[in-house]
Nucleic acid binder design. Sequence first.
DNA 1: CGCGCTTCTTGATCTTAATCAAGGTCCTCC
DNA 2: GGAGGACCTTGATTAAGATCAAGAAGCGCG
Lengths: 246, 246
Amino acid sequence: MHEIELSHVDCADCPIRHRAVCSRCETDELEQLEEIKYYRTFEAGQTIAWTGDKLDFVATIVSGIATLSQTLEDGRTQMVGLLLPSDFMGRPGREMATYDVTATTEVVMCCFRRRPFEDLMRNTPHIAQRLLEMTLDELDAAREWMLLLGRKTAREKIASLLAIIARRDASLRHTGNSDVLEFDLPLTREAMADYLGLTLETVSRQVSALRREGVIELAGKRHVSVPDFDRLMLETGDDTDGGFLV
Amino acid sequence: MHEIELSHVDCADCPIRHRAVCSRCETDELEQLEEIKYYRTFEAGQTIAWTGDKLDFVATIVSGIATLSQTLEDGRTQMVGLLLPSDFMGRPGREMATYDVTATTEVVMCCFRRRPFEDLMRNTPHIAQRLLEMTLDELDAAREWMLLLGRKTAREKIASLLAIIARRDASLRHTGNSDVLEFDLPLTREAMADYLGLTLETVSRQVSALRREGVIELAGKRHVSVPDFDRLMLETGDDTDGGFLV
DNA sequence: CGCGCTTCTTGATCTTAATCAAGGTCCTCC
DNA sequence: GGAGGACCTTGATTAAGATCAAGAAGCGCG
């Protein structure tokens, strides 16, 4: 077990590193991963899997954005996860999808056939360990989201979502220190509503209110800039250090 | 790697099996676990850990009920997890508690010192694997809870909680097939409210409504019996197969 | 037994966000 | 450039649940 952090080694022709599964893995494990992997592209709006579908791969998101959502009998839906580049999807050891997975933009995924991936996981503790870490992080994020859904006001919910997307976006482009955060909302108002447990009208109203009060600026409907991130954070209701959701 | 399922072997003097960590582990691993484990009792109402506290153990609940909760700056609180006997608490690889952990009844925990447990985990893939499975289950439960918090009505929330407790209670006493489900609510109305993202008054009103309409019966304030589980399930808003939360 | 405490219930009122409804903006495609 | 459609905004009204308030039930304890 050598000591190089292989998260620093790019995974073959993948445009991003496999944060998901390669961290700390050994070179030959990396090669094994190479053998069972393939790429798939989904177009914007396409359903990647319905709840109950057979799912014979696990994957990391290379580019684009996908969502996980659940639906009640009568059609009310709740988004339960947002998959951004470098996020992992699928569950080793489970055949069926337990959520509806949808591409909201064009999505490129780096897939691993499930069975060989599971075998690999059994033989290479580092991968299991890494997956455990990631799952624990996701669990923390889910629980932070429970706090949002259960106790925050509509305004706080919107501010929280914007803060998360801003942070996440900034970290993806490695421009962590520019003063003015700017990004395109990857979600429609309806998708935001589904994520936040609101209606799309309420989302629209609260976004307008935040704009009116100068907390954010809008160029078009989707392009947001945040002149003062701390001001936005104040609106989230969180403790000042904030969380690391999604 | 022999094939006995050691989940069938009672763990020394533990009153329950360590569903959490012993499943499929080998005999000598079991012995190693024995060496680093100890018991702790917390009395009802006692705080096991505050967010940010140093936590030098992980543990399984042996008896009693504990809760995980998070709080916003201004005191609004949301429960994000309910720990019942055989549930696991703590996070390998993390020093600090990220939630407030509280004993709602007297709680006996079987603790493992964190460092040695982490070492053990590194050397025994089965334990890491088992922990991964459990964490994935918890993640599913958290996401199902997100659906509840974001989209269910007060009435549906109450019905869902009662259904979960009823199911969980029945499985704990191995009386899975008695017709009338009966159990004591392990939570005050306030704790139920914190779990469901409601106020205690709303909880009280909805419980009263379900009683008035014969969906449940109450003896005293805490003892519930469910004459017709399917009837209760109808009130949850879930698909008819239901979930397996918490 | 009755005091004091916590927990719970119920009622009256208020607030937030949902619902219903209409119209506006922007983009694509001919 | 204009038609069609998806997406978004805003207004009016309603409804679900929060809040405020009072009192009842249950319980440990002297």
